[in-house]
Amino acid sequence: MEKIVQCELCPNGCILGPGQRSRCRTRTNSDGKLYSLVYGRPCAVHVDPIEKKPFFHFLPGTTAFSIATAGCVLACKFCQNWQISQSKPEDTDTYDLPPAKVISNALAYRCASIAYTYTEPTVFYEYMYDTALAARKERVKNTMHSCGYINERPLRTLSKYLDAANIDLKAFTEDFYSNVCGGRLKPVLDSLVILKEEGIWLEITNLVIPTLNDDAKKIREMCRWIVDKLGRDVPLHFSRFFPHYRLTNLPPTPIETLESARKTALDAGVRFAYIGNIRHEAENTYCPNCKKVLIERTGYVVKGNHVVNGKCRYCNTAIPGVWN
């Protein structure tokens, strides 16, 4: 009988015969067992401001030891890291960095957190899980920036050691996920609800792409879903698109489109809506009560922080987030 296996990590559910490779390129069936090919072998390692992820309500002004391996569960035509996300592990140069070394590096560089990021951390799940577990013991926090395309059981298992997640909600239509990303919307929405249930600090990024997902009605629908299912306090980042990978035919997102999306979010009840990938006053955090600037940012640099013990310095309103 043939030794066939099914990966149960993400909704792709790859069924693999011996020697076959998963769609994410990082898993293989070897003699009837499923193996990860990227454990302890990141192809990208950097110390980044946490604002770059972006996290705006999670330890602002700190740095995150950031790692990624090759591979992705999706195939977004606009991917900004396509050189590594759409590569096989053997086609990238890698570091030998087992979990213990990640932690020791994070401590040596005085990083408050580790970020599993750049590509899709689900593809290096085992590596991320072991690193997160070890980091928790050393009181280093764990964050991930993910597309949220992961099954419930692995996500809940990881959540025990996860402190914060930024999930790309790439659009609010199944058509977009199917035609532009090679995936489905429903599993991403499920992941967002699960993360909220698990008490993980959650932020959402929506890359606004001209003509593909910038329909005002759909953005309004998305914002209403966020408020209804996740609450008003989940920060929402509208990010500016730049032509990349297979979408070089489209222009960068007009500033007015981003401003309009942000207004739509605020009108729908989202309390913290941001504009990213561009210098703009909507990079700042404003107190939802007294409207004063609480965290002043320029790009990834925090120039002023007036959140004191989780509250607005000026009017004492509680500001949701992880501040210490």
Partner: peptide
């Protein structure tokens, strides 16, 4: 360039 390191995956099943 990486050598091929195999680590058993956490979530899978035999078909």
């Amino acid at each position: 360039k990486p050598e091929q390191h195999l680590t058993e995956a956490m979530f899978w099943r035999r078909v």
